[in-house]
């Protein structure tokens, strides 16, 4: 009987041990990631938080099968021929060139994904600001307006390339969005830019380089009006002229006397650029246009690395967006 007792006691003890210690604990121990629950942002984190709303422009424009390709492959400026080392790619460039692209073509899909990536990011940040999870003491209106104008910029691309896209503005709404008409998207872009215009910074210096200021907003608006007849059926020439005049009369931007100034490697001092997408050899790669435009041996002439890496001096034009 003694043995029986010892056994019962040891089993009970073992059971108690297992139930009351960490032996049934399955919490994840996270080491090399930042969990949302452990991230407490302060005001100094704001640039890092809004960064992703802008950085998506890099793959969007000069990235692989980006907007540059979408705009230029079907147009007359470039053609991407098949070469001995490839570039047939299942006929994707030839289809673009012949205006015969289909539903699985990457270029239009990439622009959609990149634009909504930007729009979602803006919505997320706006939601965080409104819910108070990002503390902002001053400059809240300016920041909110800048983000909304940035979102309007992405919609201004979509209204041009895709037309009747869904209008998503609320991050907390997880339901499937409804498609809007092209007219509604047009009106949304116009309304958002006009409503937020006066909160936007009017300076155009290093602090606003690559960001949306008042003049960028007006430029986006001017381009929207310029194409209004295509989007809505009603031309808006006068409104377009008004926005352009505002920019010209502000006397901040000029046409550079030396056209090449726009295309030097460090072109951030060009007075002609209104909105730029900054790339950098080390910190902001993702420009892949040299891959398709240069021959392999150019690497030796231009002193390039073999890696897929952008040398800004080679393709200066995509340092700015042609608005």
């Amino acid at each position: 009987m003694k043995q029986h007792k010892i056994l019962s006691i040891s089993v009970l003890m073992a059971g108690a041990f297992l139930l009351n210690t960490g032996c049934t604990k399955l919490d994840e121990e996270v080491y090399d990631q930042v969990l949302e629950t452990s991230f407490r942002p302060s005001e100094k984190d704001i640039p890092a938080i809004i960064g992703p709303a802008y950085t998506i422009m890099r793959p969007m424009y000069a990235g692989w099968q980006g907007n540059f390709d979408l705009q230029e492959e079907p147009a007359d400026v470039i053609v991407t021929p098949a070469r001995p080392n490839g570039w047939y790619d299942g006929g994707t460039y030839q289809r673009m060139h012949n205006h015969e692209w289909n539903q699985v073509q990457w270029q239009p899909q990439n622009l959609w994904n990149n634009c909504y990536n930007g729009i979602n990011t803006v919505n997320r940040i706006l939601f965080q600001i409104e819910s108070g999870s990002i503390p902002i003491a001053n400059g809240k209106d300016a920041l909110v307006s800048e983000l909304k104008a940035l979102r309007a910029f992405y919609y201004s691309l979509l209204v041009d390339t895709h037309g009747n896209v869904p209008l998503v503005t609320d991050f907390s709404d997880a339901t499937l969005p409804q498609q809007a008409t092209r007219q509604q998207v047009y009106e949304f872009v116009e309304k958002e830019l006009l409503e937020n215009m006066n909160n936007l910074s009017a300076v155009a210096d290093k602090s606003m380089y690559g960001r949306i200021n008042k003049w960028v907003a007006k430029t986006i608006l001017a381009r929207l009006y310029l194409n209004a007849e295509v989007y809505t059926g009603t031309a808006q020439w006068q409104k377009c002229i008004e926005q352009c005049n505002d920019i010209i009369n502000a006397n901040i931007y000029i046409l550079e006397s030396n056209y090449k100034n726009n295309f030097v490697t460090a072109n951030e001092n060009s007075k002609e650029l209104i909105l730029a997408v900054p790339y950098d050899e080390v910190f902001a790669t993702q420009n892949s246009i040299h891959m398709k435009t240069l021959a392999t041996a150019h690497r030796n002439v231009l002193n390039m690395e073999e890696t897929v890496r952008f040398l800004s001096s080679l393709i200066p034009m995509i340092r700015m967006i042609h608005v």
Partner: peptide, 16 residues
């Protein structure tokens, strides 16, 4: 992310 954001002349690391 090491995919930097140019903020006031500085390449900072964005978080997302």
């Amino acid at each position: 992310s090491n995919n930097r954001y140019l903020y006031n002349g500085q390449w900072i690391q964005p978080i997302s």
